[in-house]
């Protein structure tokens, strides 16, 4: 197995760890951090593709992913603070206002 395939495997592992974190963590802040891990895994895959193909487009898309990550952090943490101030809790199991029941 070549080194580039090992890099791709590592990026997939990081993405799945982030996905698992989104599924199992109780706290809203840690859920947001897990999404950051997923975005980082994607960036690693982009950089690896650049090394394999000998271009720079992957890094450019990684920059756009970084931009979206920064925007997501600003809005997501604003939402967390707003939820805590209005409702007084931080657990993901308590956020059931949009559920139909």
């Amino acid at each position: 197995m070549s080194l580039e395939k090992a890099y791709l495997l590592l990026s997939v592992a990081l993405f799945l760890i982030g996905l698992l974190g989104v599924m199992i963590r109780k706290n809203l802040v840690t859920i947001l951090i897990s999404t950051e891990l997923m975005l980082n895994g994607i960036n690693l895959a982009f950089a690896t593709a650049d090394k394999v193909l000998g271009g720079v487009e992957g890094q450019i898309f990684a920059f756009f992913v970084l931009t979206v990550a920064a925007a997501e952090v600003a809005v997501g943490l604003g939402l967390v603070v707003a939820i805590f101030r209005l409702k007084g809790y931080e657990g993901s199991s308590e956020l059931t206002h949009m559920r139909d029941r």
Binding site: Y7, L10, N43, L44, A47, T48, K51, Q59, A62, L66
Partner: peptide, 14 residues
Amino acid sequence: LFLSLGAELLAGIQ
């Protein structure tokens, strides 16, 4: 890891 992949600017921005 970005540095080892030769993506220096990405490492700095990271």
